[in-house]
Design a binder for these strands. Structure first.
Lengths: 127, 127, 127, 127
DNA sequence: GTGGTCTAGACCACC
DNA sequence: GTGGTCTAGACCACA
């Protein structure tokens, strides 16, 4: 996994974990990878992963069994979806519209690109 | 002008200047406000504006006449549009599509929201 | 290290860093001194060193690992050499030739002076 | 005339004037262009040309007849040559040699480039 | 007047 | 610990 450098790494990892949950790969009461495990896999400092898990724990997306590890919360999908949707509608969408306007891009063009995107990503997504 | 605190001020100012150019309010070979002038207007430190102008100069959006000031580059609109479009296509759009997919949002819904957005913002934009 | 006062300090530091790389003293993926560290060593303000590193990062001579520090880019030597050579051929050399012409100096004389220069500097350079 | 942006314009103009004298185009006790005249020709602020002339007057390359203008000093060629040569030997040459060394360029290559330069510039120079 | 550089010092997020 | 941003204020060369 490679990280964008305009966004904190721990947040990018949080997004990654959230997506795994959203995609149903990690489901309710599954154990998520240990801090050390994930840190090694992603080649980051364990502190960074720890921060991710703290964040997700605060959002009640995962919970902690002391000495054992972190686990996916029962209503994790709902939580993640709510959080994601709010940010999308409040922040991403207005900026997206502003860009459409300033760059004079038509929604039809977006539609076409979206279809191409879907075609390209659907199978790999569900792999 | 008020600044978000999750993005560097000097970049927000750069975006502001770029938009002025994109909207045609500052045009080719116009003098942009002097560093001090803009700093006072925006209530920031001159160094911060200086940094903005350095950035825009590197992007060849503005150029410098020594001892006189900064001026809008002849092809500034093209430059700004190219930079903005690239970031939009490379970064914003894929993430946007990913969100649509993950949140199971239909493009039709986006369309409706866009029309509402346009209706709300068109007049204020061209003021 | 002492600085000339007709050239910005941050550029002189950049030249210094570039030379270290060119001379092979700092090599690919080495960590360069931290901003604060180098600032103390050179007795300048950290901001000044920061500016140097920004510059070198833009030139892709060094890269950043967030929270860890700056590192010499894998192809830093190539980059530095290319940048230096371009400036040399485009700017320095034509002016040099013009001076030879205007001052009526022969290349033979230059050759002799060069040999003297080499003799004087070779050992100290490779120290 | 176009100016490099790493050197003060007034010094570039001074260099230009000096070269005219060195090339014998303006000779002893000739009147040099008036400040205003030269400023218009070079598209710079008259103050800038004034500064050039002050500089050259300090170096005793030109002298002033009040109310009439500036004139080439009788020994201007000697003066210019001495000044130019000193800077060349003290500053330009050592830096030149350092570049040869760091970029691993052979004097033979310089020789070849010099011949090409001469061939290309001799006629246009004496036009 | 203009930009440009530098210092001192603070505060912050991130790793 | 690391970089990154920002302020306040100074000083300078240049046009």
């Amino acid at each position: 996994m490679e990280f964008k450098d305009n966004e904190p790494i721990y947040l990018q990892i949080a997004a990654y974990v959230s997506e795994q949950i959203l995609l149903g790969k990690w489901t309710a009461d599954d154990k998520v990878p240990s801090v050390r495990e994930l840190a090694v896999a992603l080649q980051v400092n364990p502190n960074t992963v720890m921060r991710t898990y703290e964040q997700l724990q605060n959002q009640e997306v995962i919970y902690n069994k002391r000495g054992i590890g972190f686990f996916v919360a029962p209503d994790a999908v709902k939580k993640v979806k709510a959080l994601k949707k709010e940010r999308f509608l409040q922040q991403d969408l207005p900026e997206f519209f502003r860009n459409l306007f300033l760059l004079d891009i038509n929604l039809d063009e977006i539609q076409q690109r979206y279809e191409a995107y879907i075609a390209q990503n659907l199978e790999s997504e569900t792999r």
